[in-house]
Design a protein around this nucleic acid. Structure first.
Lengths: 224, 224
DNA sequence: TACTGTATTTAGAAACATCTAAATATAATT
DNA sequence: AATTATATTTAGATGTTTCTAAATACAGTA
């Protein structure tokens, strides 16, 4: 007789759902390989897990044809995302971590806190609406939709304000930090090379050169 | 190739060491059955784990003759105890949990936080010296020694102050709470029955009856 | 000293996530 | 349409903790 924590036998299953939700917003259905890369495991491991998640009713799984979340799976995934972002806020707001550290620290223990601890962290941080990287703290599916456009889509002369920054690559986040790119910051595009070349921009009245990859991980709202 | 977190493959191993340290302070060497009961698993499961811990050098294990911690094992156990008590403090001080809730909530996620999160919790709580139940937050072995005497050892007429309260039975803790027994509280013994009967005491100028079991889980310093 | 009861360990099994290597299905190209 | 390349799944294995049931060791009593 093994003790089962809540609905899930394992915390990893929630992680899978979280990543499926994320990948699903880019392209659906989600491919095994894409999920394997996101989870940092071998594709065969993903296949095994997909069978389990499917059996439990969290995903629609057609072998060789990818997967989508069921209503139940989506609900669980959103709960996982919400929790992750609340824990990130707690780490930055209450323990003084930098925003680029928060993501990884949160991953380490977010699965193991109770709903009550999550609720209290949320309240103690004054019910924040976004995580340190600018993503909404969701209650439902609609809340998970990323607003804004990629920084790279702007043309020279345009001015924008940073809404959110992709949070899953700590090194990149640290680099963004050194460039002064954070939610809320104003960016003016000076120049842009065609064919995925770097772009030039003014951040906090300093001239910066920003690579294609990085500029596509920053979401902005156009100001003019 | 499995990813190993730090020194341990599993968080459970640290839990074993923590409980061995605790039991060792009552009687050494520690028996398999005692450890099994403390961990809430079958004795055979303990035997398996003892082999692993022994192979790794954390315990001295002589089959059929019990176990003791090695220097390395003691170091790890103390780290685990320290972390547990810091997390408890964090839960009561920063998230407003009751002291009888803190123990279980801490158990849920204490294994998964990084050393840095632990350090910051410690600092954010103003470097506390004791946990919510009155036990010291240890840096070395000496710090783990429980001071005071069991409440039950007092004689009628004596007055004492509560130092610490056994923390591993939430129901009992809740009951202590309802009696007003907490670290720092003053207790005056009014009467005491022989042969493990209940004792009468005055807590916060209210007359109380306290059972033998409970009175032995409360440690006090004699005032007069 | 032999017996008996308890403590402890072994044997055999389950459930979990993961891996590598091999087999198969699908998609793309010639 | 046949071939090739890629994506995906299956097969077989490892390592983790845990269990029950059976075997063994120890200790206390007759």
């Amino acid at each position: 007789m093994t003790v089962t924590k809540g609905v899930f036998n394992s915390d990893h299953q929630r992680d899978y759902l979280k990543h499926i939700l994320h990948l699903q917003q880019v392209s659906s259905p989600v491919a095994t390989t894409a999920l394997a890369e996101a989870m940092g495991v071998a594709p065969s491991s993903v296949t095994d897990m997909l069978k389990k998640l499917s059996r439990k009713g969290y995903i629609n799984y057609r072998p060789y044809h990818g997967i989508t979340l069921t209503g139940e799976g989506e609900k669980e995934a959103i709960k996982a995302v919400r929790r992750h972002r609340i824990v990130e806020r707690f780490l930055t707001d209450m323990l003084g971590f930098e925003w680029h550290e928060a993501h990884e620290e949160a991953l380490a223990f977010e699965h193991n806190i109770s709903d009550e601890v999550e609720r209290r962290m949320y309240v103690a941080c004054n019910k924040p609406t976004v995580c340190p990287h600018g993503y909404p703290i969701p209650s439902s599916v609609e809340d998970t939709i990323v607003s804004g456009v990629p920084l790279y889509s702007l043309e020279p002369g345009q001015i924008a304000r940073v809404v959110s920054v992709e949070d899953d690559e700590p090194d990149l986040l640290r680099f963004m930090d050194s460039l002064g790119i954070k939610p809320g910051v104003r960016i003016k595009v000076d120049g842009k090379d065609p064919f995925k070349g770097p772009m030039q921009a003014e951040i906090d009245s300093k001239k910066r050169t920003i690579g294609w990859h990085l500029a596509n991980q920053v979401y902005v709202d156009k100001v003019s």
